[in-house]
């Protein structure tokens, strides 16, 4: 039963009210809590996913966005394998705070942590941050980029599956056990942006990593 191959810790950060908890809820429980209150401190969820036929356990730590909880949330960064930095595409200030968040991550998190920038609430009509801007920012700061909607369940599954796939790649290349990988460049998260039909894409990043990852991930997310 509990024969998962990998355990990854994912931490969500971002301003209050950008939809971190909703993203997690949508992914782990498949629901969108309408009147979700502010998270206090840290919340914890777990989800086991299957990528490339491997069971992967994802520990998802959902942190409070409020300033006053910053001290405790920071302590969760350090052990994270991946950090999802979320902003609200319909709220300019949440985007403006991104440099501050990056500074925090720089300070408290592992330097090799996988960083993903997520623009949430694509279902909203009053978009303030064009996709282009978000993409460029992500490119500048060496992050992956995706736009999601927790409400419409758009790109949520994909987000987590692709993170899982990327982390597996990293873990394997680190272990050195993975011999069938031809390219040494295992950092590139090729699956992001491979779907041309989606309006969000991160073209800046190499897509030269194995396609099996991507297909696997996609097939999981489609089921």
């Amino acid at each position: 039963m509990e024969d998962y191959k990998f355990l990854f810790k994912i931490v969500l950060v971002g301003n209050a009210g950008v939809g971190k908890t909703c993203l997690v809820r949508r992914f782990t429980q498949g629901l969108f809590p309408p009147g979700q209150g502010a998270t206090i401190g840290v919340d914890f969820m777990i989800k086991t996913v299957e990528v490339e036929g491997e069971k992967i356990k994802l520990q998802i730590w959902d942190t409070a966005g409020q300033e006053r909880f910053r001290s405790i949330t920071q302590s969760y960064y350090r052990s994270a394998h991946a950090l999802i930095l979320v902003y609200d595409i319909s709220c300019q200030p949440t985007f403006d705070c991104l440099p501050d968040w990056l500074r925090e991550i720089q300070e408290y998190a592992n330097s090799k942590v996988l960083k993903i920038l997520v623009g949430n609430k694509t279902d909203r009509d009053d978009r303030e941050i064009p996709t282009q801007i978000g993409e460029e920012f992500a490119k500048q700061h060496d992050m992956y980029f995706l736009e999601t909607s927790a409400k419409e369940a758009e790109n949520v599954e994909r987000l987590f599956y692709e993170i899982a796939a990327e982390l597996i790649d990293q873990a394997r290349s680190k272990d050195g056990t993975n011999v069938n990988k031809t390219t040494a460049d295992a950092i590139g998260l090729g699956n992001f942006g491979t779907k041309a039909t989606q309006n969000s894409c991160c073209s800046g990043f190499s897509s030269n990593t194995s396609q099996t990852n991507c297909e696997n991930g996609n097939s999981r997310s489609n089921t």
Partner: peptide
């Protein structure tokens, strides 16, 4: 024990 510490701390903030 890091998981326990993390989880118990999260529980302390139960809402």
């Amino acid at each position: 024990y890091d998981f326990f510490i993390s989880k118990f701390s999260a529980m302390c903030h139960g809402n």
